[in-house]
């Protein structure tokens, strides 16, 4: 049953699954509790502009996606504070403009863009070792940032107004948090693709949130669930020869439904 693990690409795929689970467990927890799912979706789609830029300049698209998604995160979060438009609108604009830029950049690139689809829909089986190193570095940045600033992130997520009253620089830390979302988007792109990034950023944390009220446990549980479900999805996709990104997302979705039903049935006896 485990014979598929002998392939290098399969080993890489499972390492990738572990690395994405760390990013989405930690950052996804904040995405869910601070309710910034929509802006995270915006950041992930805008990141496509960065992918396109990579093709245009002939460098690894993952590397160009990093600054591109960070800048779009800052623009989405910051523009609405400076200009008189709602954050919602800013997200909608950046979301589509970022994707359009990506397409134009690819149009302008010489030749073909053969693995373009892998960035859109994910391709965990073709993650090269060099990308794993980038993902690992981004994971470490995420972990250390959260270790350093978890008090601030907690404060702005729980009560932004009070956070300001106690002297937390709310806007700054909101931007830092969006920056972390941008980094995790980059970590996730190769695995599930831009279009399905948001599933990994929300579902593990959304499941865990039903079973714990402690933030640290929530993160740990989300990471664990992410590892099990992503690996499970990967294995199923191998078994049934299905697209890995989509299979992983479907597995996550089913797990969410099961967890919610489980939670309900656990609560019933107490009420009765």
């Amino acid at each position: 049953m485990l014979e598929f693990l002998q392939y290098q690409f399969m080993q890489n795929a499972f390492i990738a699954a572990i690395l994405v689970s760390i990013a989405c467990g930690v950052v996804g927890t904040y995405v869910v509790i601070k309710k910034i799912v929509f802006i995270s979706g915006g950041i992930s789609h805008a990141a496509f502009g960065g992918i396109g830029l990579g093709y245009l300049w002939g460098i690894n698209p993952i590397l160009t996606a990093i600054p591109f998604s960070i800048i779009s995160a800052i623009l989405m979060g910051g523009v609405s504070k400076k200009v008189n438009i709602s954050e919602d609108t800013a997200i909608g604009i950046m979301w589509s403009v970022g994707m359009a830029l990506g397409i134009i950049f690819i149009n302008l690139s010489p030749g073909y863009a053969p693995d373009l689809f892998s960035y859109l829909f994910g391709s965990i089986l073709t993650v090269p070792s060099s990308d794993l190193v980038i993902m690992l570095i981004l994971d470490l940045i995420i972990i250390f940032t959260v270790l350093a600033f978890n008090r601030e992130f907690m404060a702005i997520s729980f009560d932004e107004e009070f956070a300001q009253v106690i002297g937390v620089r709310s806007n700054l830390f909101y931007m830092v948090l969006l920056g972390l979302v941008a980094l995790s988007v980059v970590v996730l792109i190769k695995v599930v693709g831009i279009i399905m990034v948001i599933a990994l950023l929300t579902i593990p944390a959304a499941i865990s949130k039903q079973f714990t009220y402690n933030l640290r446990n929530l993160m740990i549980l989300s990471i664990g669930l992410g590892m099990v479900l992503t690996s499970g999805g990967l294995w199923l996709s191998y078994l049934f020869d299905l697209s890995s990104g989509a299979t992983i997302v479907i597995v996550l979705g089913i797990a969410f439904v099961i967890a919610s039903l489980l939670k309900k049935s656990l609560e019933q006896p107490i009420k009765a």
């Binding site: 997520s157 009070f162 956070a163 002297g167 402690n214 933030l215 929530l218």
Partner: peptide, 30 residues
């Protein structure tokens, strides 16, 4: 600011936020 205590309107609170009473109050000591 350090001399000001503030009680916001409590209507805007997410009651399913993963935080307990102690952690909530501890935030005041930032």
């Amino acid at each position: 600011l350090h001399k000001i205590g503030y009680l916001p309107q409590i209507t805007h609170f997410e009651t399913d936020f993963p935080i307990n009473v102690f952690e909530t109050v501890l935030m005041g000591r930032y």
